[in-house]
Simulated assay, not measured.
Amino acid sequence: MTTQDHDDRALDSAPFGGRPGGALVVGGSGAIGRAVAVRLARLGSDVTVTYAGSSAAAGETAELVVASGRACDVERLDMGDPGQAAEAVARAAEQRGGLHTVVLAASPTNFQSWVSTLPPEQYAEQLRVDSGGSFAVVSAALPHLRESRGSVVVVSTVANRRFVLRDVLSSGPKAANEALVRAVAAEEGRFGVRANAVGVGILDEGMTQVLLGTGDVRPEQLEVAVSRVPLGFLGKAADIAAAVGFLASEDARYVTGQWIDVDGGYGM
């Protein structure tokens, strides 16, 4: 057996490098968070998922994780409360016997707005909850990730490469989260901790459907956006989860401080 064969078998049998603990998926009640939780479970990790508003949706995610053969716990987390973030991380680490992966997949509810009409107070609140909450989770998780030499994966947006009109409530905080990814990668690499991001393109589920339902995005606008996607079709939450799973796994052990846009080429 060659060294390469041995390495390949090790990856197949231990996708997370044999690290102790499990995964925490923040935002596990949404389409992307659910797909991520199931993907990590299928890779062999027990999971804790958080939710902000829908315990029923988070419970459905947990059922899918369990059906995949792994354990799953559910925790409520208000991203606007740093104390809750610290408590949720601590409980997840206790439930899982440590943490080897933290995925930030929460998408605090927002609507489309022109910069010229957006109240500064609303933008500040979005920053506080989305980027401030993400920082609180990562800050609380770092001691556990140092112990396991684990990783953080932030679910971001392709709008930080190709701006989508009226999308500043999403892209602004996500840009701050991408800066946090680079900070963690640069500063925590000495402890073996990695941090990366996945940019979400236009999906046919999740927030896209929410915005269509509220009228913030009209069907004809979505058609125009899809016409600008080189691959010519909308993505799925499972496409995002596949990239997250790669970045969290031992396959990406030498990847840090990066982002992968899963967008069908839209960001080019």
Rank of each mutant, 00 (worst) to 15 (best):
Q4R: 13
H6A: 15
L11Y: 12
A14D: 12
P15W: 10
G18L: 09
G22Y: 00
G22K: 04
L24V: 03
G30K: 05
G30L: 11
A31D: 13
A31R: 11
G33Y: 10
V36Y: 11
A37V: 06
R39Y: 01
Y51N: 02
A52F: 09
S54L: 03
S55R: 15
A57Q: 13
G59D: 13
E63W: 01
V65S: 03
V74R: 08
E75Q: 13
R76G: 14
P82A: 10
A85V: 04
V89C: 07
V89H: 04
A90S: 14
A90T: 14
R96P: 01
G97K: 02
V102C: 06
V103G: 11
L104Y: 14
T109Q: 12
S113R: 11
W114Y: 12
V115I: 15
L118N: 10
L118E: 12
L118S: 09
A124M: 10
L127A: 08
V129A: 01
S131T: 14
G133L: 09
G133R: 10
F135K: 08
V138A: 15
A141K: 09
H144L: 08
L145V: 08
V152A: 03
S156E: 05
S156I: 07
T157L: 03
A159H: 10
D167P: 07
V168G: 13
L169V: 05
L169M: 14
S170Y: 02
R182K: 15
A183W: 14
E187V: 11
G189D: 05
R190I: 11
V193R: 00
R194A: 00
G201L: 00
I202W: 14
D204L: 03
M207P: 02
M207Y: 06
G213W: 06
G213P: 02
T214W: 00
V217D: 05
V217H: 00
P219L: 10
V224K: 08
L234Q: 13
I240C: 10
V244G: 01
F246C: 01
W259R: 15
D261S: 15
G264A: 08
G264C: 08
G265D: 12
Y266M: 06
